[in-house]
Design a protein around this nucleic acid. Structure first.
Lengths: 220, 220
DNA sequence: TGTTTAATTAAACAGTTGTTTAATTTTGTA
DNA sequence: TACAAAATTAAACAACTGTTTAATTAAACA
């Protein structure tokens, strides 16, 4: 049994998960997103996934490593998606807009894992092996830098832009909106789930695009 | 004992907390901020505050109500601070800038509670009696609306601004930066705690002010 | 087919959790 | 000083936590 766990851990960077493992990951994802990592027990996961409680330890080694696996599983193909955008033949501002839309759409259709990341990153869990996620962020930052440089070379964007601060503005705005769902549904009078989601993909996306555009080309 | 708990709950909106209660609240604040609500046990709080574990239930009734009390204790005087800003004799853009600086400074010097709010609001805890906080936000939004309207009347600001989306941009940017401390200390090469805090009060504040300004006056 | 490996199970483990209890000490008041 | 109220304590409560165990069933392979 112990050997199997080691195998899983060393190989998960290259190999995929089995159907059974994915089933557990998906259940864990929604529960972690709803109740938080600490707030979700292995027994609840097991009951929801209709498996024995021992199976979680058996497949992933521990609860912490289950979370690691989940993060890896959900973020492994985001890097490629961003990099594909770079080579497209678009104006810099159009590229930025597409990047923003891609981010929001991506996060919005994977609400669970990003909520978890947002949460559990903040609580000190230094043992967490989320290097893959850390690398992903650096890579995404590099992609963003490339687009901005292109725009600066073409004379469209300002020269004095703090690129690392663009991500907090893009993602932060989205997350704050998303984390305070109830409040904004009330304030903006969005009675249904659908109207709320629609507001995100249309109005909020537009707002963020407009914000970044203003920041990139407006001369003070 | 039970009567005392009832008294506390019904009066906490008007009366202050005792020294002993505040001592417990302060300990709980740092622990909740560090390890999260679920991740912090009453025993840990008691040990840190050098009191008996029974005292938490004795003073606050339950762990949940301890959190409620903490949120109330920390947010009760923020409303006044914002409203004072409104009556100051400043240009609209200067008022906005001051509001942003006030927000960031306020949150930054009360890191704990805002981190907790950010966290625990998102996890479904509908039982939580945080109406006072909810009202605070609505009141703050009204203050922001007043400043924007003034600027619009003076012809300085655009007319087509989604005011409710300004808060996500201001607070979201800050929080995203603040919640990913380690990452940004690495990326921006801020080796010490001091340099990181200095970056927040100077550069990040300026970035957010610049963002909002661009959004308010830039014509696309 | 028999044998080895993997998957699954119920039960137990050793802690921890929030809360309550009854007894005791401290404090305030008459 | 005597008495009542409040504060504090250690201990117990029952429920829950993540993880491990040994036994059993299912699958893979020769």
């Amino acid at each position: 049994m112990f050997n199997f766990v080691v195998y899983l851990n060393s190989m998960c960077a290259t190999f995929d998960f089995t159907e059974k493992q994915i089933q557990i990951l998906l259940v864990a994802e929604t529960l972690f997103a709803d109740k938080g990592f600490e707030g979700t027990s292995i027994r609840t996961i097991a009951k929801e996934a209709k498996i024995n409680i021992a199976m979680v330890s058996y497949y992933f080694g521990s609860k912490e490593r289950l979370l690691e696996s989940l993060i890896f599983y959900r973020t492994k193909d985001l890097k490629i998606e961003i990099e594909n955008l770079l080579v497209e033949d678009l104006e810099p501002i159009a590229k930025i807009n597409k990047l923003i839309a891609l981010y929001i759409n991506r996060i919005n259709s994977n609400k669970g894992i990003f909520r978890i990341l947002h949460f559990e990153m903040a609580t000190q869990k230094k043992e967490l092996n989320i290097k893959s996620f850390y690398d992903l962020r650096k890579s995404n930052l590099k992609s963003l830098e490339a687009i901005i440089s292109e725009g600066q070379d073409k004379g469209v964007f300002r020269k004095d832009i703090s690129i690392p601060l663009l991500t907090p503005t893009i993602l932060g705005t989205f997350f704050h909106f998303y984390m305070n769902k109830e409040y904004f549904m009330d304030i903006l009078q969005l009675p249904t789930e659908d109207s709320y989601n629609n507001y995100i993909t249309v109005d909020l996306t537009k707002h963020i695009q407009q914000t970044i555009k203003a920041l990139l080309i407006y001369e003070s």
